[in-house]
């Protein structure tokens, strides 16, 4: 697969509407997607469950293309106070205590089916959208940070200062908690998350985005065919982000 095809769904739309290149795609897959693509006034539906597959064998230590793409996409800045700066996605380097095997992987909100952050949120600001994306409604977040205490993945950040220069599609501000949105604004227009696009553009293809519920989706196919694991599987949260090669 060349880079153009495997990157975002948007590419597909341009191609499809032009009526070309359908043959270059996996047969059937994209046609189903086209039929399912949600209209602007249609709510997200439980028919889909968006997820990510992280192929740890393809992820390289020192590469942070996904992290920079996320920071650019959402306007996450550097205040020179790293302990309080928000990080929606981070690279984690691992060394096996016994064998010395070295691994590197991205870690972000795992978009649990049973998210502890949603359970503990007193106002219901932490919520899970019908299509499985776990979000913070910053209009009702009071900044109590109980969700940060509850998250097993340390996926959430609290905004410790006034912000300026926010992006239109990524409102963020002091006193509220935030985390990876799985690029919900892109997903809503049938594109993949910025990290996935960046990983593909960097030639790694360690991140696969798709619909877990759709048998024909490349993500669902790969999840069905290979062994993947959830982080903190002992908590039985049924995460939408799965890791292969860990």
């Amino acid at each position: 697969m060349d880079m153009k095809n495997s990157s975002p769904r948007r590419t597909f739309f341009t191609q499809a509407s032009a009526g070309v290149a359908l043959l270059a795609l996996a047969p059937g897959v994209r046609l189903v997607d086209l039929a399912l693509a949600r209209a602007q006034d249609e709510p997200a539906s439980a028919a889909q469950r968006w997820g990510l597959l992280v192929d740890v064998d393809r992820c390289v230590s020192g590469c942070d293309a996904c992290v920079s793409a996320c920071n650019t996409e959402h306007g996450l800045g550097d205040s020179e106070r790293p302990q309080t700066d928000a990080q929606w996605i981070r690279k984690v380097d691992l060394v096996d205590h016994n064998t010395g095997r070295q691994l590197s992987l991205p870690l972000m909100c795992q978009h649990c089916e049973e998210p502890p952050c949603v359970d503990v949120c007193p106002t219901g600001a932490s919520f899970r959208r019908a299509d499985g994306i776990v979000l913070v409604d910053k209009h009702t977040c009071i900044g109590c940070r109980y969700c940060m205490m509850a998250c097993p993945y340390k996926a959430r950040s609290f905004i410790h200062e006034d912000l300026t220069g926010q992006k239109t599609h990524a409102p963020r501000g002091k006193g509220a908690v935030e985390s990876c949105t799985l690029c919900v604004h892109r997903v809503d227009r049938d594109e993949s998350p910025a990290c996935v696009e960046a990983c593909t553009d960097a030639g790694r293809e360690a991140l696969v985005f798709g619909d877990i519920n759709d048998r024909n989706d490349p993500l669902a196919t790969q999840l069905a065919e290979t062994t993947t694991r959830e982080l903190r599987a002992d908590l039985k949260l049924n995460t939408a982000v799965r890791y292969r090669g860990l």
Binding site: R38, D41, D188
Partner: peptide, 21 residues
């Protein structure tokens, strides 16, 4: 509109803040 957009992903521009701006 904000509740529709945040909670359900309905992104019609008509009553959106971005649309006003």
């Amino acid at each position: 509109q904000r509740d529709k957009t945040v909670r359900e992903g309905i992104r019609t521009p008509r009553h959106s803040l971005a649309g006003c701006i």
